[in-house]
């Protein structure tokens, strides 16, 4: 979890161009490891493409694609984020104090995305190994075609959760409005409780693994089914 560093280098987005800010973060060498971005004012593509174990705190809300393609870095947004936060994240940690808009963590390969508020539609769409923990609710079509990784939701999930799911694991504590095609509830085994306990701990989430249900792929869509030929 990101902690606001007291000796962080402050980058004022009211004074600097977005590209300057991102260049400063992307070019961070060993000397500076903590940055504070002030006045983000809903800007797009804040703190994207980072590839070093630095800590970035964003003091306010951002727009589209915050912390996209993140590698190694820890990005903490003290506000809400627009669509596509942590899109295609490879590793590192992204923590959002507020809400996240559409397709949070889309296509992410690794790392941990924590949303302390709600995430809207298509959360974790096509996720490929990222772990996502949402303290609130998620919207419809979340984890659509999700391939790998874990999506943990403390609140409720919207319609068509896990539609056309591959091998991502979905854990929901609250209600699921409806399951998408080929997504089913599955048995919670000890190894899943262990994964959940670790993720909840790392995400600072106050919940017990036993309170969740697990959903996964029925694996019926993996292969063409000749019996259904007339339905296509």
């Amino acid at each position: 979890m990101a902690k606001p560093a007291t000796d962080a280098l402050v980058l004022d987005m009211a004074e600097m161009e977005l590209r300057e800010v991102n260049s400063a973060l992307q070019g961070a060498s060993g000397n500076e490891t903590a940055f504070q971005l002030v006045n983000p004012r809903g800007s797009h593509a804040v703190a994207v493409g980072l590839d070093a174990p630095i800590e970035v705190t964003v003091k306010g809300s951002t727009g589209y694609y915050c912390a996209g393609m993140n590698k190694q870095a820890t990005v903490h947004v003290e506000g809400s984020v627009g669509p596509g936060v942590a899109e295609n994240m490879m590793s590192g940690t992204v923590v959002i104090d507020g809400d996240a808009s559409q397709y949070a963590g889309a296509t992410g390969h690794g790392g941990l995305l924590v949303v302390k508020g709600n995430a809207s539609s298509r959360c974790g769409i096509s996720m490929k190994g990222i772990d996502i923990v949402v303290h609130g609710n998620i919207g419809h079509m979340s984890a659509f075609m999700a391939q790998k990784g874990n999506l943990v939701v403390l609140g409720n999930a919207g319609d068509a959760l896990g539609d056309s799911l591959y091998e991502a694991r979905l854990f929901v504590r609250g209600e699921v409005k409806s399951l998408g095609a080929d997504c089913i509830e599955k048995e919670m085994r000890p190894e899943h409780l262990e994964i959940l306990a670790d993720l909840l701990d790392r995400a600072g989430a106050d919940a017990k693994p036993e309170e969740f249900k697990r959903y996964g792929s029925a694996r019926k869509l993996y292969n063409f089914n000749i019996d259904h030929a007339d339905e296509y």
Partner: peptide, 26 residues
């Protein structure tokens, strides 16, 4: 129902605001 066109709202005691993006509220 698909809701792919963005929308965000803000409310205080003084106003209700709508924007396609949060930037509009800054």
């Amino acid at each position: 129902p698909i809701a792919c066109k963005p929308a965000v709202m803000a409310e205080t005691d003084d106003y209700v605001a709508f924007g396609s993006e949060y930037r509009a509220f800054a």
